[in-house]
């Protein structure tokens, strides 16, 4: 089903709220290409990732009316839902000691060229975020990578990297301060 891109995400949510299952399909087509890798990367298990992605869109379907434009754009909302679902699973696994933490030398964030399947707007946003991350000192970037894309807590990062907890906390704080301007502009809808 081709997505002409004419209908906004917000409009799709409105239609979903009114019971239009096809709009759910369109929202899925638009954002699952990004959600799948995000969740697979966190969970490293494609079967579990599949469940999380399905539950994420299901929650969007059931609770489309809970989307609050003042808090985030629709994609950001989906990211938050997917990430929190994935983290719940990941941390439950780790609590049971079944899941080794990713190694400290987890691959750095790289900037592969956008997948041709990913649309232009997405590629544009992606480029901005990658550029913002690239502007961070390597140790801050690495810390954000471990926290955000590998679901590690500050404490876990400290243990794994051998850095004092205070240092890890400081890096996260500084990194988020530096990311604030470019990412906030993006979040406000600027491209």
């Amino acid at each position: 089903m081709p997505d002409t891109g004419v209908v906004s995400d917000e409009e799709l949510l409105r239609r979903m709220h009114n019971g239009d299952a096809d709009s759910l399909g369109r929202l899925y087509d638009r954002w699952s290409p990004l959600l799948f890798p995000l969740v697979v990367h966190l969970l490293t298990d494609p079967d579990e990732a599949e469940d999380v992605v399905q539950e994420t869109f299901w929650q969007a379907w059931r609770h489309a009316d809970r989307y609050d434009a003042a808090r985030s754009d629709v994609a950001g909302w989906l990211f938050v839902i997917a990430r929190s679902k994935a983290l719940m699973r990941l941390r439950a696994r780790r609590r049971r000691r079944e899941e080794p933490l990713p190694s400290a030398d987890a691959p750095e964030l790289v900037a592969p060229l956008a997948d041709p399947a990913v649309n232009a707007e997405l590629a544009g946003r992606r480029a901005i975020v990658l550029a913002a991350l690239a502007g961070l000192p390597p140790e801050q970037r690495h810390t954000v990578d471990l926290a955000y894309f590998h679901g590690m807590t500050q404490q876990e990062i400290a243990e794994r990297t051998g850095q004092p907890l205070g240092t890890v906390k400081g890096r996260i704080r500084l990194a988020l301060e530096k990311l604030r301007q470019p990412l906030a502009a993006l979040a406000e809808g600027g491209l």
Binding site: P37, F149, L183, A187
Partner: peptide, 21 residues
């Protein structure tokens, strides 16, 4: 939270299993 969620755009792009999707 609003701006940090934008980090997701930088998720490593990996090939998706189309049949799964």
């Amino acid at each position: 939270r609003r701006y940090a969620s934008q980090l997701s755009y930088a998720a490593p792009i990996e090939p998706i299993d189309q049949a799964r999707s």
